[in-house]
Simulated assay, not measured.
Amino acid sequence: MDALEKLPPLREVIAAHDLSARKALGQNFLLDINLTRRIARSGGPLSGAHVIEVGPGPGGLTRALLLEGASHVTAIERDARALPALAEISQAAPGRLTAIEGDALATDYAALAADKRVRIVANLPYNIATPLLTGWITSSSWPSWWDSLTLMFQLEVAERIVATPGSKNYGRLAILAQWRTRPHLLFEVPARAFTPPPKVTSAIVRLEPRTDAVALVPRSLETVTAAAFGQRRKMLRSSLRSLWNEPEPVLERAGIDPQMRAEQVPVEGFLTLAGIWEEQLGKRA
C-alpha cells in the first residue's frame, strides 16, 4: 500500500491538530477521498504535472492530487495550524509537496511557477474565490503561466462564470472569464459533503486559457462592463453615457444595437467596445 494511503483518516488528523474549521478563514473541509480524487481528476491527467493548490487545510485534496499522480504540489495555506498536517503528507510523499504559509491574495503565482507550466486545482475559500480568479485571468502577461484552473466556487458564482447572453446570471464576471478562458461547469458538490456544511451548494469549474484571446488592457474591459452593467435595466445608449457623450455612434461602430441592454450583448461585443475605449484614450493622451 502507498504511504499516502496509510495516512490516518482526515477526521483523526483534524482532531489531532485541533483543526476545527474557522469561519473567518472561509474553511469548509472535504473529507471524502473519493470526492477529492474526483476533483483532482477534473484537472486532467496529473501524471508528471506541477499543481498549485490554495487553502489545503488538513490536506484532503492535497492527498488526492498526489495519489492521482501529480509530480509536485505547491500548497498555499494561511492557517499555520494546518502546516503540521501537511508536513505528514510531505513525509509520505518525499520531495513532492511544498507547503507555504502565506496569504493567497498576496502570492506571486508566476514566480511560484518558476517557468514550469502549472495547473491550479483548489477548493477555494469562498471569501476570496472571485478575487483570486480575476487576478489569475487578468494577468498582465498572456498567454498565461498556467495550463488550466480547476476550482471550487459557490454554485451561484460558478453559474455567473459560465453564463451566456440573455440569462439572468450573465454579467461582468462571465465576460471577464470568457474573454481569456473557456469555462466549463463540471459538477455540483452538495453542502453535506463538507465539514462543517456550508449553507450553499458548491460547484467545480474548469477554465482553460484561450489562445485566441483578444489583446486588451484588462482595465479597459472592466471599465466598459462596469458602466454597462451598472445600470443594466437601461438601454446601452443610456448606460454608456458615463463613458461617451454620444454612445450611439460607438455602439453602431461595434455592431451593437443601441437599444440593447447589457445582458443581451455577447462577449465579443464588449471586447470591441473595450478596444474602442482604449483607442480613444490613446487619442486623448
Rank of each mutant, 00 (worst) to 15 (best):
V217I: 14
T211Y: 00
G43Y: 05
R81A: 02
R253S: 07
I161H: 04
N28W: 01
N123T: 07
I39R: 09
Q280P: 01
A254Y: 09
R284G: 02
V224M: 08
S139K: 03
L46S: 09
S42V: 06
D212W: 13
R63L: 15
A21E: 04
G95I: 01
K23H: 07
Q280C: 00
A3H: 08
L25N: 02
A111F: 06
R261Y: 09
G48C: 00
A254S: 12
R96N: 05
L221H: 11
G44K: 12
L186P: 07
V121N: 01
V118C: 07
Q231H: 15
Q259T: 15
V265P: 00
F229P: 14
L155K: 09
G95Q: 05
G57N: 07
S141M: 02
L155S: 00
D2N: 15
A177E: 05
E248T: 15
I76W: 08
G166Y: 10
I204Q: 13
E278M: 13
S167P: 01
T195R: 13
R182F: 00
T130G: 10
A227F: 04
K116V: 02
W145F: 15
A64E: 10
R232E: 04
G255Y: 07
A104E: 14
A21I: 08
D79L: 06
T138S: 09
R237M: 12
K116W: 01
R38A: 12
R11Y: 03
W142F: 10
I276H: 09
A177T: 13
A87T: 15
S20V: 13
I276D: 07
L221S: 09
Q154T: 00
G69E: 11
P131T: 08
G69N: 04
K199H: 05
A191G: 03
T225V: 14
L10M: 08
W136N: 03
T107C: 15
Y126G: 09
R180S: 03
I137A: 02
S220M: 04
L105I: 10
T138C: 15
L4D: 02
P196A: 08
L207K: 02
I256A: 03
A93H: 04
R232S: 11
S242P: 01
L97D: 09
A215Q: 14
A213Q: 04
A254Q: 11
T36L: 05
H184T: 10
S90M: 03
E101G: 11
R180H: 00
S141K: 08
L61G: 07
L124R: 13
M152I: 11
D257R: 14
R253F: 00
R237A: 08
E5D: 15
T195Q: 13
T195M: 10
L7R: 13
A70L: 04
R117I: 05
R63H: 08
A16K: 11
K168W: 05
P247F: 02
A104T: 13
E53Y: 07
Q231F: 05
G275Q: 14
L112P: 09
R117T: 14
S202T: 13
A93I: 10
A80H: 11
V13G: 10
A49Y: 00
I52Y: 03
S90P: 05
P131W: 11
I161L: 13
R11P: 01
T195I: 06
K199T: 14
L149P: 01
S148H: 06
T223Q: 12
Q91C: 08
P196W: 13
T74R: 15
P8Q: 11
L155T: 00
L271K: 14
L97K: 07
A113M: 04
G43T: 06
A16S: 09
